[in-house]
Design a protein around this nucleic acid. Structure first.
Lengths: 150, 150
DNA sequence: ATGACTGCAAACTCTTTGCACAACA
DNA sequence: TGTTGTGCAAAGAGTTTGCAGTCAT
C-alpha cells in the first residue's frame, strides 16, 4: 500500500464501499479500480491487466478477474457482454445504450435515455427483482459498413 | 434427406431462404432449425445438440454451431448473450426484452415493446447501421430473491 | 495474530479450425 | 461431377479453481 497517494477522489468511493462491507483495501483493488476509471471505457479483463502491469507489476490475471467481479458487485462497474470476444467492463454507471458492430466487435456508447421503465415494471410484476437494464444495438459500424458493401 | 416430410410450415421459410442464397438444404439444417422452433426458446448450442441427437443421430456439435450461426445470418434466429454461461439462441424474432438472473442465469421473456427508436436513431446518426436492438434486464429471479434474503 | 487476499499453475467451458469424407445440386 | 457441407479430433480463447504463501487489519 505505497505510492498510492494520488487520485484521491477516484479512490474514495471504492475505499468507502470496501470498508462498508468489511473488505480489505489492497493495492491491487485500488489500482484495478483506477485503471477502469481513468482509461477509456469498455476494457476487457486482459486490457485492465495490461494497464495494471504498468502501475503495479506482478498483479495476476485471476486477481484482475476477481476484482472486476467485486467492482460489479459493489456497484462500481458494469459488465457489458457483447457475445463477441471477451466480456467488457464499464465504469460509466449511468444507464446508457451500447452499439456493437457484429462485424468487428467495436463498441460505442449511445448517449440516450433508456426508456426501459415499462419493461422493468413488467419484469417486477412477474416476481423478478430488477437491478439495472441495458440496451444493446447490433449492426455494423461505419467502417465495416463501408468496407463491405453487401 | 428422408423422413423429413412432417412440419412443412416450420420448414418452409428455412428452405426458401437457403434456396434464395444458393445454399444447400441438408437434413442437419432442417432438423436444427426445427429443434429451435419447436422446443422452448433460448436453447444453447449444447441443448440443440441434445435435441438433434434424437431426431438425427450422428450430427456433430461443430455443425450445430455452424448452423445456428447460419440461422442468425438468415434472420431465422437471434443470439442472446447473457454473459453468464453459454450463448443462447432464440427463434422468437419479434423484438422483446429479456430478464436475466445474475444469480442462477435463468432467462425469461418480457413481452413489452422496446422503445429503442430514439437510441437506434442516435446510433444511425453516428454512421452506425443498426440491425436490431435488444434490451436485457439484470436482476434476481423470484426463486433466487427468495432463497437468499441479502 | 488471523483470516482475507493474492499469485501461480492447472483445469475447465465454450467455441472454432483443419482436414478428409460425404452428399446435395 | 463439383463443390458445399459434415464429422472428427484437436486447438484455441476466455475464465475459473485449488492451494500455498502474503499482507491488511
Amino acid at each position: 500500500m505505497a505510492a498510492l497517494a494520488e487520485h484521491p477522489t477516484v479512490d474514495e468511493e471504492l475505499v468507502a464501499r470496501l470498508r462498508a462491507r468489511g473488505l480489505r483495501v489492497t493495492s491491487q483493488r485500488v489500482v484495478i479500480h483506477r485503471a477502469l476509471r481513468t482509461h477509456a471505457q469498455h476494457l476487457s479483463a486482459e486490457q485492465v491487466f495490461e494497464h495494471v502491469a504498468v502501475s503495479l507489476p506482478g498483479t495476476s490475471l485471476p486477481t484482475v478477474y476477481a476484482t472486476l467481479e467485486l467492482l460489479v458487485e459493489l456497484g462500481l462497474a458494469r459488465r457489458v457482454s457483447t457475445g463477441a470476444g471477451p466480456t467488457l467492463f464499464d465504469s460509466r454507471l449511468e444507464p446508457h445504450a451500447h452499439a456493437v458492430c457484429s462485424e468487428c466487435g467495436a463498441l460505442a456508447d449511445i448517449d440516450e435515455p433508456l426508456r426501459a421503465e415499462a419493461a422493468v415494471r413488467r419484469a417486477r410484476a412477474a416476481g423478478f427483482r430488477p437491478d439495472h437494464a441495458q440496451l444493446v444495438i447490433w449492426g455494423r459500424c461505419a467502417k465495416c459498413a463501408e468496407n463491405q458493401r453487401s
